[in-house]
Simulated assay, not measured.
Amino acid sequence: MDSQDAVRRVYAASYRRLVVQMLALGGDQAEAEDAVQEAFVRAIGLGRRFARLDNPEAWLRTVALNQLRNRWRHLAIVQRRGGQVPGPAMVLELGPDHVALVAALATLAPDLRTVAVLHYVADRSVLQVARELDIPEGTVKSRLSRAREQLSLLLTEVEEHEHA
C-alpha cells in the first residue's frame, strides 16, 4: 500500500472520530475540523513514514491537539496584548460592486488571483509583482491578461443578472 492509500484509509476510519474529540476539547467545530485537516496535511507530508506508524490515529490526534494548543496560545497572547495591537481604524463598508469583485476574484486560480490583487488592489507595478513572487515579468503580464479576461466575463454576467 502506498502512502496516499494509507492516509485515505486512516482518513475514512478516523476523521469523524478525531473531529468529535477535538470538538470536545475546544468547543468549536470549525477549529476542530481545521486542526484535524492540518494533521492530515502533515500526514501526507510524511509520505511512507506515515504508513509505517504503529498507531497513525494517535499520531494524528497528537498533531491535531498541538494545533489546538497553538491556537489557544496565540489567542492568549492576543488577549494579553490586545490593547497594544492596533485594531481596524474603521469598519469596512463594502458595496455590491466590492462584493461582486471579491466573489469574482475568488473564482480565479490562486496564481491569477495573486497577481491581480497585488497589481490592481495593492497597486504594485508588474516589476514589483514579479520581484515579490519571484517570477518573470512576462509571467505576471500573461497572468494579468488571463485574470482580466476571466474577471471581465464574470463581472459582465453579474451586471447583466442585476439588470434583469
Rank of each mutant, 00 (worst) to 15 (best):
I44E: 12
I77H: 03
L75N: 07
E31L: 14
R113M: 02
A76M: 03
H119Y: 12
V85Y: 02
S14Q: 09
V85G: 00
D134C: 13
G95P: 05
E31H: 12
P88S: 08
R143H: 04
E149P: 00
R42C: 08
A51R: 14
R49Q: 13
E132A: 10
S125C: 04
E137V: 15
S142M: 05
Q67H: 07
L18E: 09
V7T: 09
V117E: 09
A64W: 08
A164T: 10
E160P: 02
V121S: 12
L153F: 06
L68T: 01
A6Y: 01
A6G: 07
F40T: 01
R61D: 09
L155V: 04
R73I: 01
R71Q: 02
A24S: 09
R8I: 10
A30D: 13
G95Y: 07
A116T: 10
D2R: 08
L101V: 04
Q128L: 10
T139Y: 04
V36T: 07
E38I: 00
M90N: 06
R9C: 08
V20W: 09
I44Q: 11
V19M: 00
P86K: 12
E93L: 13
Q37P: 00
Q4F: 12
R42Q: 15
V85T: 03
R81H: 04
R71C: 00
D111Q: 14
H119T: 09
S145D: 05
A12T: 07
R71D: 00
L118H: 14
N70T: 08
I44D: 08
I77R: 11
E132S: 06
A103V: 04
G95D: 13
E93W: 08
A51M: 09
A147G: 07
P136V: 03
D54K: 10
Q128W: 01
I135Y: 04
L92V: 04
V63E: 03
A64D: 01
R48Q: 14
R52K: 12
Q4E: 14
V99F: 01
L127G: 10
Q37N: 09
A43H: 11
V115Q: 03
A32H: 05
R143E: 00
G45W: 03
N66S: 06
G95L: 04
V41D: 05
E162S: 15
G45C: 08
Q29L: 07
H163W: 14
L154R: 15
R146G: 00
R69K: 11
P56S: 07
H163T: 14
S125M: 07
G87W: 10
R143G: 01
V102Q: 11
M1F: 14
S125E: 08
R131A: 15
A13V: 06
L108A: 02
A6F: 01
H119A: 15
L25Q: 06
S152K: 10
D134I: 14
A13N: 02
V7Q: 13
G83C: 00
R113T: 00
H98L: 03
L154K: 12
G82T: 00
A164V: 11
A12G: 07
P86N: 03
L65Q: 13
D97M: 09
R81M: 03
S14Y: 04
A12C: 06
Y120T: 12
A6C: 11
Q128E: 15
R17D: 06
T62H: 14
